[in-house]
């Protein structure tokens, strides 16, 4: 019974871990997708569109792994979430900016 209360108790150390699991799984996935957009935007003039997209896709798994490792290495779960959101925003903003400058929309 005390175990159960421990589970539900939000101040229990389980909740930050659960929060990090969510951050790593879904935040990491979102960052991986965002990074693929940025990479393909960066490479589109070098390699052509399809290869640029392809390289972005191939690298998503590495970005995902790094993101997940980072989420579990920082001090607090809150910091992990903020960091992830910042990175996702950075990728998307830079992608948008590059597309604006070069005139190639994805």
């Amino acid at each position: 019974m005390s175990n159960l209360i421990d589970y539900i108790n939000f101040s229990s150390p389980r909740w930050p871990v659960f929060s990090r699991v969510l951050a790593a799984t879904f935040g990491g996935y979102a960052l991986a997708i965002a990074s693929s957009l940025l990479i393909s935007q960066l490479l589109v003039h070098v390699t052509g569109k399809y290869q640029a997209i392809h390289i972005g896709l191939i690298l998503t798994f590495l970005v995902y792994v790094c993101a997940a490792m980072w989420v579990f290495s920082v001090k607090t779960a809150k910091k992990a979430w903020i960091g992830l959101l910042k990175s996702i925003f950075f990728c998307l903003a830079l992608t948008w900016l590059l597309a604006k400058i070069t005139g190639v929309a994805n």
């Binding site: 991986a32 957009l37 569109k49 399809y50 997209i53 392809h54 896709l57 998503t60 994805n106």
Partner: peptide, 18 residues
């Protein structure tokens, strides 16, 4: 797995070509 990324960047014909 990364269908979201390809959906954002290509339409159906482009995906086939790719």
């Amino acid at each position: 797995y990364m269908v979201l990324s390809t959906n954002l960047q290509t339409n159906e014909d482009e995906l086939d070509a790719m």
